[in-house]
Computed example of a mutant assay.
Amino acid sequence: MVTVEQVRQVVLGLPRAYEALVRDRIKFRVGQIVFVAFSADETELGFGYPKEERDALIAAEPGKFFLPRVSDLRFNWVEAWMAALDEDEMRELVTDAWRMCVPKRVAAAHLG
């Protein structure tokens, strides 16, 4: 199980990423693009993920990942249960979501 603080530590170590509070929900952005967000009760973690790959991710682990609400299906977005994620997996998902939002040169410089 991962915590909000563990996610925060990963996100705030990424170039151009910052935290915002929107309608009492913690969200992380690059510019105006949200790439990670928590549910109001902090039990769910939403993150950027390619639309064309999300069905496979959810099918592989339906107890861990699920689709966002219908109004958010148009976005590159997936949801996960915080209790089902481990720290390494969270780090990879968050970093990949961030990578979708920054210029390739920024991601390459940070990730080597």
Rank of each mutant, 00 (worst) to 15 (best):
R29T: 03
A84Y: 09
R23K: 11
V70L: 11
A83K: 13
F75N: 14
F65N: 05
E52K: 13
A80G: 08
D55F: 05
V78Y: 03
I33G: 04
R69L: 11
I33P: 00
A107P: 02
R29F: 07
P68E: 01
V11E: 04
D86Y: 09
A84K: 15
S39P: 12
V4Q: 11
S39A: 07
Q9H: 07
T3Q: 05
D88Y: 09
G46A: 12
K64V: 13
I33S: 11
E61Q: 15
F38T: 02
T3G: 00
M90F: 09
E87S: 13
R54Y: 06
P62K: 07
R25V: 01
Q32M: 05
R25N: 04
L93G: 04
M90K: 12
W77A: 09
D41H: 04
R16A: 12
W98C: 03
K104A: 13
E19V: 02
E42Q: 11
R29N: 05
E42C: 05
V30D: 06
I26F: 02
A83C: 04
L93M: 10
G31C: 05
S71D: 11
R25M: 07
F75P: 04
T43G: 09
K51D: 09
V34Y: 01
E87T: 12
K104F: 07
I58E: 03
K27C: 10
N76R: 14
I58S: 10
I33K: 15
E5G: 01
A20T: 12
W77C: 06
Q32C: 01
V22Q: 04
A97H: 11
A20V: 14
L67D: 06
I58F: 09
R74C: 03
G13R: 00
M90P: 12
Y18V: 01
V34N: 10
I26E: 00
V106R: 03
D86V: 10
K27G: 05
T43H: 12
G13D: 04
Q32P: 05
A80H: 03
L85E: 07
G48K: 15
K64R: 13
V4D: 01
A17C: 05
K27I: 12
T3D: 00
V78T: 05
R16G: 04
L111F: 14
L57C: 05
M100Y: 14
E52L: 10
P103L: 07
W98D: 00
V70G: 01
L57S: 01
L73C: 10
V94Y: 06
D24I: 00
F75Y: 15
V36H: 02
L93Q: 08
Q6S: 02
P68A: 02
V22N: 00
A40Y: 05
V34Q: 08
G63H: 02
A59T: 10
E92N: 12
A60Y: 06
S71A: 14
K51M: 12
L67T: 11
R105H: 05
I26N: 01
T95G: 08
V30A: 03
D41F: 04
T43E: 13
R74V: 13
P68Q: 01
M100F: 14
D24N: 02
R69V: 13
F38K: 02
V4A: 04
I26C: 04
A60M: 08
R29C: 02
P68K: 00
D41G: 08
M82S: 09
S71F: 07
G48M: 11
K64M: 08
E92P: 07
